[in-house]
Amino acid sequence: MTLKHNILAGLAALMLAGPAASDDFERAAIVMPGSISDNGWNQAGFEGLTQAGEALGFETTFSESVHQPEQIEVLSDYARRGYDLVIGHGGEFQDAVERVASRFPETMFMVNNGLGTKENVANADFYFSQIAYLMGYIAGSMTQSDTIGIIAAQKFKFTTDTVAGYEAGAKAANPDVSVLVTWTGDWDDIAKGKEAALNQISQGADVVWPTMDSATLGAMQAVQEKGVYGIGIYRDAINEWPEILQSAILDVRGNMRSYLERAAASELDGELYRATMSNELAMRIGSFHPDIPVEVVDEVAKLIDAMKSGALVVEPQ
Protein backbone atom coordinates (compact mmCIF):
# COMPACT_ATOMS: atom_id res chain seq x y z
CA MET A 1 0.00 0.00 0.00
CA THR A 2 2.72 2.45 0.94
CA LEU A 3 4.74 1.46 -2.10
CA LYS A 4 1.80 2.17 -4.32
CA HIS A 5 1.31 5.40 -2.52
CA ASN A 6 4.90 6.40 -3.22
CA ILE A 7 4.64 5.55 -6.87
CA LEU A 8 1.51 7.60 -7.16
CA ALA A 9 3.12 10.52 -5.37
CA GLY A 10 6.13 10.25 -7.64
CA LEU A 11 3.92 10.22 -10.68
CA ALA A 12 2.14 13.23 -9.34
CA ALA A 13 5.40 15.10 -8.90
CA LEU A 14 6.37 14.16 -12.45
CA MET A 15 3.14 15.50 -13.82
CA LEU A 16 3.35 18.66 -11.81
CA ALA A 17 6.62 19.58 -13.43
CA GLY A 18 4.69 20.64 -16.46
CA PRO A 19 5.29 23.66 -18.65
CA ALA A 20 6.77 26.47 -16.59
CA ALA A 21 4.53 29.49 -16.45
CA SER A 22 5.98 32.52 -18.16
CA ASP A 23 5.40 36.03 -16.87
CA ASP A 24 3.57 37.32 -19.91
CA PHE A 25 -0.16 36.99 -20.18
CA GLU A 26 -0.65 34.55 -23.01
CA ARG A 27 -3.62 32.29 -22.51
CA ALA A 28 -7.05 32.54 -20.92
CA ALA A 29 -9.83 29.98 -20.59
CA ILE A 30 -13.50 30.29 -19.70
CA VAL A 31 -15.64 27.55 -18.18
CA MET A 32 -19.37 27.93 -18.74
CA PRO A 33 -22.39 26.19 -17.24
CA GLY A 34 -24.46 26.23 -20.44
CA SER A 35 -24.26 26.28 -24.19
CA ILE A 36 -22.37 28.95 -26.14
CA SER A 37 -25.36 29.42 -28.42
CA ASP A 38 -27.95 30.18 -25.75
CA ASN A 39 -28.39 33.78 -26.83
CA GLY A 40 -27.80 34.83 -23.25
CA TRP A 41 -25.38 34.56 -20.39
CA ASN A 42 -23.17 31.82 -21.79
CA GLN A 43 -22.95 33.14 -25.31
CA ALA A 44 -22.03 36.55 -23.91
CA GLY A 45 -19.23 35.05 -21.84
CA PHE A 46 -17.88 33.05 -24.74
CA GLU A 47 -17.91 36.03 -27.08
CA GLY A 48 -16.54 38.34 -24.40
CA LEU A 49 -13.42 36.27 -23.98
CA THR A 50 -12.96 35.38 -27.64
CA GLN A 51 -13.32 38.94 -28.89
CA ALA A 52 -11.06 40.35 -26.20
CA GLY A 53 -8.47 37.71 -27.02
CA GLU A 54 -8.50 38.65 -30.69
CA ALA A 55 -8.27 42.35 -29.95
CA LEU A 56 -5.68 42.17 -27.22
CA GLY A 57 -3.63 39.37 -28.67
CA PHE A 58 -3.86 36.40 -26.35
CA GLU A 59 -4.95 32.84 -26.87
CA THR A 60 -8.41 31.83 -25.65
CA THR A 61 -10.29 28.61 -25.14
CA PHE A 62 -13.55 27.51 -23.56
CA SER A 63 -15.48 24.60 -22.08
CA GLU A 64 -19.25 24.72 -22.33
CA SER A 65 -22.04 22.89 -20.53
CA VAL A 66 -19.84 22.09 -17.55
CA HIS A 67 -22.10 20.82 -14.79
CA GLN A 68 -21.60 20.71 -11.04
CA PRO A 69 -19.64 17.47 -10.69
CA GLU A 70 -17.09 18.46 -13.34
CA GLN A 71 -16.28 22.00 -12.27
CA ILE A 72 -13.22 21.23 -10.18
CA GLU A 73 -11.83 18.84 -12.76
CA VAL A 74 -12.20 21.34 -15.60
CA LEU A 75 -10.83 24.34 -13.70
CA SER A 76 -7.82 22.37 -12.42
CA ASP A 77 -7.12 21.01 -15.86
CA TYR A 78 -6.83 24.48 -17.35
CA ALA A 79 -4.62 25.64 -14.51
CA ARG A 80 -2.44 22.58 -14.97
CA ARG A 81 -2.17 23.27 -18.69
CA GLY A 82 -0.59 26.58 -17.81
CA TYR A 83 -3.37 29.01 -18.59
CA ASP A 84 -2.68 32.40 -17.05
CA LEU A 85 -6.30 33.21 -16.36
CA VAL A 86 -9.14 30.78 -15.78
CA ILE A 87 -12.66 32.23 -15.67
CA GLY A 88 -15.59 30.52 -14.00
CA HIS A 89 -18.67 31.92 -15.71
CA GLY A 90 -21.28 32.22 -12.98
CA GLY A 91 -21.68 32.24 -9.21
CA GLU A 92 -22.01 28.46 -9.16
CA PHE A 93 -18.27 28.30 -9.86
CA GLN A 94 -17.30 30.35 -6.78
CA ASP A 95 -16.75 27.41 -4.50
CA ALA A 96 -14.89 25.27 -7.02
CA VAL A 97 -12.70 28.19 -8.09
CA GLU A 98 -11.68 28.92 -4.50
CA ARG A 99 -10.71 25.31 -3.98
CA VAL A 100 -8.72 25.05 -7.20
CA ALA A 101 -7.15 28.49 -6.73
CA SER A 102 -5.58 27.42 -3.45
CA ARG A 103 -3.81 24.60 -5.29
CA PHE A 104 -2.56 26.75 -8.15
CA PRO A 105 -1.28 29.95 -6.57
CA GLU A 106 0.48 30.92 -9.81
CA THR A 107 -2.73 31.00 -11.81
CA MET A 108 -5.20 33.87 -11.72
CA PHE A 109 -8.87 32.98 -11.42
CA MET A 110 -11.95 35.04 -12.06
CA VAL A 111 -15.56 34.38 -11.23
CA ASN A 112 -18.15 36.24 -13.24
CA ASN A 113 -20.99 37.12 -10.86
CA GLY A 114 -19.17 35.51 -7.99
CA LEU A 115 -18.88 36.68 -4.44
CA GLY A 116 -15.76 37.43 -2.46
CA THR A 117 -12.14 37.52 -3.50
CA LYS A 118 -8.78 36.00 -2.59
CA GLU A 119 -5.16 36.61 -3.47
CA ASN A 120 -5.60 34.96 -6.87
CA VAL A 121 -9.38 34.94 -7.14
CA ALA A 122 -10.96 38.02 -8.65
CA ASN A 123 -14.64 38.60 -9.04
CA ALA A 124 -16.57 40.56 -11.61
CA ASP A 125 -20.24 41.30 -11.27
CA PHE A 126 -22.92 43.80 -12.06
CA TYR A 127 -24.72 46.27 -9.91
CA PHE A 128 -27.96 44.56 -10.87
CA SER A 129 -30.08 46.69 -8.55
CA GLN A 130 -29.21 49.87 -10.45
CA ILE A 131 -30.20 48.75 -13.90
CA ALA A 132 -33.20 46.81 -12.64
CA TYR A 133 -34.37 50.00 -10.92
CA LEU A 134 -34.21 51.84 -14.23
CA MET A 135 -36.12 49.10 -16.02
CA GLY A 136 -38.72 49.10 -13.28
CA TYR A 137 -39.01 52.88 -13.55
CA ILE A 138 -39.66 52.73 -17.27
CA ALA A 139 -42.09 49.83 -16.92
CA GLY A 140 -43.91 51.61 -14.12
CA SER A 141 -44.20 54.77 -16.22
CA MET A 142 -45.53 52.97 -19.25
CA THR A 143 -48.03 50.57 -17.76
CA GLN A 144 -51.66 51.33 -18.45
CA SER A 145 -52.99 48.55 -16.28
CA ASP A 146 -50.82 49.35 -13.25
CA THR A 147 -49.52 45.79 -13.50
CA ILE A 148 -46.08 44.79 -14.71
CA GLY A 149 -44.27 41.47 -14.63
CA ILE A 150 -40.79 40.01 -14.25
CA ILE A 151 -39.89 36.40 -14.98
CA ALA A 152 -36.82 34.75 -13.52
CA ALA A 153 -35.59 31.18 -13.39
CA GLN A 154 -34.08 30.54 -10.00
CA LYS A 155 -34.13 32.43 -6.78
CA PHE A 156 -30.69 33.43 -5.56
CA LYS A 157 -28.83 36.60 -4.71
CA PHE A 158 -28.55 38.19 -8.13
CA THR A 159 -32.03 37.35 -9.28
CA THR A 160 -33.62 38.55 -6.04
CA ASP A 161 -31.55 41.75 -6.32
CA THR A 162 -32.87 42.23 -9.82
CA VAL A 163 -36.46 41.61 -8.82
CA ALA A 164 -36.17 43.96 -5.83
CA GLY A 165 -34.59 46.72 -7.92
CA TYR A 166 -37.28 46.35 -10.55
CA GLU A 167 -40.02 46.63 -7.94
CA ALA A 168 -38.40 49.64 -6.30
CA GLY A 169 -38.03 51.45 -9.63
CA ALA A 170 -41.59 50.70 -10.64
CA LYS A 171 -42.94 51.95 -7.32
CA ALA A 172 -40.88 55.13 -7.69
CA ALA A 173 -42.51 55.86 -11.03
CA ASN A 174 -45.99 54.71 -10.11
CA PRO A 175 -46.87 54.03 -6.48
CA ASP A 176 -49.98 52.09 -7.50
CA VAL A 177 -48.18 49.55 -9.62
CA SER A 178 -48.26 45.90 -8.71
CA VAL A 179 -45.39 43.69 -9.81
CA LEU A 180 -45.98 40.07 -10.78
CA VAL A 181 -43.03 37.76 -10.20
CA THR A 182 -42.80 34.29 -11.75
CA TRP A 183 -40.10 31.72 -11.07
CA THR A 184 -39.90 29.13 -13.83
CA GLY A 185 -37.18 26.96 -12.31
CA ASP A 186 -35.55 26.56 -15.72
CA TRP A 187 -33.25 28.91 -17.62
CA ASP A 188 -33.71 27.26 -20.99
CA ASP A 189 -37.20 25.72 -21.21
CA ILE A 190 -38.59 27.93 -23.95
CA ALA A 191 -42.13 26.61 -23.77
CA LYS A 192 -42.23 27.29 -20.05
CA GLY A 193 -40.87 30.81 -20.59
CA LYS A 194 -43.69 31.50 -23.02
CA GLU A 195 -46.29 30.08 -20.69
CA ALA A 196 -45.04 32.20 -17.80
CA ALA A 197 -45.27 35.36 -19.90
CA LEU A 198 -48.73 34.48 -21.22
CA ASN A 199 -49.83 34.01 -17.65
CA GLN A 200 -48.55 37.37 -16.52
CA ILE A 201 -50.21 39.03 -19.49
CA SER A 202 -53.55 37.39 -18.83
CA GLN A 203 -53.13 38.47 -15.23
CA GLY A 204 -53.11 42.04 -16.50
CA ALA A 205 -49.42 42.78 -16.96
CA ASP A 206 -48.73 45.00 -19.96
CA VAL A 207 -44.96 45.17 -19.49
CA VAL A 208 -43.03 41.92 -19.04
CA TRP A 209 -39.35 41.52 -18.33
CA PRO A 210 -38.03 38.00 -18.91
CA THR A 211 -34.56 37.51 -17.42
CA MET A 212 -33.73 33.89 -18.25
CA ASP A 213 -31.38 32.55 -20.95
CA SER A 214 -32.88 30.62 -23.89
CA ALA A 215 -36.27 30.70 -22.18
CA THR A 216 -36.38 34.47 -22.75
CA LEU A 217 -37.10 33.75 -26.42
CA GLY A 218 -40.34 32.03 -25.54
CA ALA A 219 -41.44 34.82 -23.22
CA MET A 220 -40.74 37.46 -25.88
CA GLN A 221 -42.74 35.40 -28.33
CA ALA A 222 -45.72 35.71 -25.98
CA VAL A 223 -45.14 39.44 -25.59
CA GLN A 224 -45.22 39.84 -29.35
CA GLU A 225 -48.32 37.71 -29.84
CA LYS A 226 -50.27 39.54 -27.17
CA GLY A 227 -49.16 43.00 -28.25
CA VAL A 228 -47.81 44.16 -24.90
CA TYR A 229 -44.42 45.66 -24.06
CA GLY A 230 -41.31 43.72 -23.17
CA ILE A 231 -37.97 44.60 -21.66
CA GLY A 232 -34.72 43.25 -22.98
CA ILE A 233 -31.69 41.93 -21.17
CA TYR A 234 -27.97 41.58 -21.98
CA ARG A 235 -28.13 43.42 -25.30
CA ASP A 236 -30.14 46.06 -27.12
CA ALA A 237 -32.96 43.67 -27.89
CA ILE A 238 -35.23 46.17 -29.65
CA ASN A 239 -33.38 45.25 -32.82
CA GLU A 240 -34.85 41.76 -32.62
CA TRP A 241 -38.15 42.53 -30.90
CA PRO A 242 -39.81 45.84 -31.73
CA GLU A 243 -42.01 45.50 -28.62
CA ILE A 244 -39.06 46.19 -26.34
CA LEU A 245 -39.40 49.36 -24.28
CA GLN A 246 -35.81 49.43 -23.18
CA SER A 247 -33.03 46.94 -22.58
CA ALA A 248 -30.91 46.34 -19.52
CA ILE A 249 -27.60 45.93 -21.26
CA LEU A 250 -25.60 43.90 -18.82
CA ASP A 251 -22.71 43.84 -21.20
CA VAL A 252 -20.87 40.77 -20.08
CA ARG A 253 -18.54 41.26 -23.03
CA GLY A 254 -17.83 44.86 -22.05
CA ASN A 255 -17.35 43.98 -18.41
CA MET A 256 -15.00 41.18 -19.34
CA ARG A 257 -13.20 43.47 -21.71
CA SER A 258 -12.55 45.91 -18.88
CA TYR A 259 -10.89 43.32 -16.70
CA LEU A 260 -9.25 41.42 -19.54
CA GLU A 261 -7.45 44.59 -20.58
CA ARG A 262 -6.02 44.71 -17.09
CA ALA A 263 -5.19 41.03 -17.30
CA ALA A 264 -3.38 41.46 -20.60
CA ALA A 265 -1.25 44.10 -18.93
CA SER A 266 -0.72 41.68 -16.01
CA GLU A 267 -2.55 44.06 -13.71
CA LEU A 268 -5.48 41.89 -12.71
CA ASP A 269 -5.67 41.53 -8.93
CA GLY A 270 -7.80 39.51 -6.59
CA GLU A 271 -10.42 42.21 -6.34
CA LEU A 272 -14.05 42.86 -7.07
CA TYR A 273 -14.63 44.43 -10.47
CA ARG A 274 -18.20 45.62 -10.28
CA ALA A 275 -19.90 47.10 -13.31
CA THR A 276 -22.03 50.10 -12.42
CA MET A 277 -23.88 52.67 -14.47
CA SER A 278 -20.66 54.70 -14.39
CA ASN A 279 -18.90 52.10 -16.51
CA GLU A 280 -20.78 52.35 -19.79
CA LEU A 281 -18.67 49.73 -21.45
CA ALA A 282 -20.07 47.18 -19.04
CA MET A 283 -23.55 48.33 -18.05
CA ARG A 284 -25.87 50.73 -19.79
CA ILE A 285 -29.36 51.09 -21.14
CA GLY A 286 -30.24 50.56 -24.78
CA SER A 287 -32.56 52.31 -27.20
CA PHE A 288 -35.88 53.72 -26.08
CA HIS A 289 -39.09 52.52 -27.68
CA PRO A 290 -40.68 55.32 -29.79
CA ASP A 291 -43.82 55.14 -27.62
CA ILE A 292 -41.98 56.35 -24.55
CA PRO A 293 -42.75 60.03 -23.91
CA VAL A 294 -39.90 62.51 -23.77
CA GLU A 295 -40.56 63.27 -20.10
CA VAL A 296 -39.85 59.68 -19.13
CA VAL A 297 -36.69 59.62 -21.23
CA ASP A 298 -35.50 62.79 -19.49
CA GLU A 299 -36.39 61.42 -16.07
CA VAL A 300 -34.40 58.24 -16.76
CA ALA A 301 -31.41 60.31 -17.81
CA LYS A 302 -31.65 62.20 -14.53
CA LEU A 303 -31.83 58.95 -12.59
CA ILE A 304 -28.72 57.68 -14.34
CA ASP A 305 -26.87 60.87 -13.49
CA ALA A 306 -27.99 60.55 -9.90
CA MET A 307 -26.70 56.98 -9.82
CA LYS A 308 -23.36 58.04 -11.27
CA SER A 309 -22.95 60.87 -8.80
CA GLY A 310 -24.01 58.68 -5.92
CA ALA A 311 -27.08 60.77 -5.14
CA LEU A 312 -29.31 57.77 -5.84
CA VAL A 313 -28.26 54.53 -4.22
CA VAL A 314 -30.31 51.43 -4.89
CA GLU A 315 -29.49 49.02 -2.11
CA PRO A 316 -29.11 45.39 -3.06
CA GLN A 317 -31.37 43.22 -0.95
Binding site: S35, D38, N39, D186, D188, I190, A191, K194, S214, L217
Partner: peptide, 16 residues
Protein backbone atom coordinates in the same frame (compact mmCIF):
# COMPACT_ATOMS: atom_id res chain seq x y z
CA UNK B 1 -44.85 21.65 -32.23
CA UNK B 2 -42.32 23.33 -29.93
CA UNK B 3 -40.60 24.99 -32.89
CA UNK B 4 -43.38 25.65 -35.39
CA UNK B 5 -46.27 26.45 -33.08
CA UNK B 6 -44.68 27.81 -29.96
CA UNK B 7 -41.41 29.65 -30.22
CA UNK B 8 -40.28 29.61 -33.88
CA UNK B 9 -36.65 28.93 -33.03
CA UNK B 10 -34.56 25.87 -32.31
CA UNK B 11 -32.66 25.90 -29.05
CA UNK B 12 -30.32 23.19 -27.82
CA UNK B 13 -31.93 20.92 -25.29
CA UNK B 14 -35.34 22.52 -25.83
CA UNK B 15 -37.09 19.21 -25.11
CA UNK B 16 -36.33 19.97 -21.44
Amino acid sequence: HLVLSQVYVFAEGMSA
